[in-house]
Design a protein around this nucleic acid. Sequence first.
DNA 1: TACAAATGTAAAGTTTATTTTACATTATGA
DNA 2: TCATAATGTAAAATAAACTTTACATTTGTA
Lengths: 66, 66
Amino acid sequence: MKNNIKVERAIKGMTQEDLANKVSVSRQTINAMEASKYVPSTVLALKIARLFGKPVEEIFILEKTD
Amino acid sequence: MKNNIKVERAIKGMTQEDLANKVSVSRQTINAMEASKYVPSTVLALKIARLFGKPVEEIFILEKTD
DNA sequence: TACAAATGTAAAGTTTATTTTACATTATGA
DNA sequence: TCATAATGTAAAATAAACTTTACATTTGTA
């Protein structure tokens, strides 16, 4: 699975820390997510999508290997 | 977070095991998810939503406590 | 009723998400 | 250039997802 968090965050002009605070996770979690180092929970995905005003499917994209 | 998996599964006429096989998890994982015993990963949520032909947000719903 | 399928549940184990702390590197603005 | 903000990264610890095995209960149906 890949994601567009970095792009959406840039559109909103937010830092990783800003986003982390808004969705109540650590900055490292955001950083690792942007680097696709792990798959976030559905709660986190829903919060991020809601914050960015886009559907989950537009931000998190399944890949063939998933 | 709550979810409508049980309802959507009934609409499709699938058993927990059917669904488990389709999204490559164990039947117990589906059973526990339906009982909201834990929050699934985003990959799993995307697979389930795709299978049901509905957006993630229609199947997984954030609550105030999230 | 009886049998089978479906569901519920539980415990132990493995894997993975997330936190915390800490430091190094990179960008940016005065 | 200097200072500071932002980002990258890493290791250790904790929490949570998910698996496997196993059994009990419920439900549908012949």
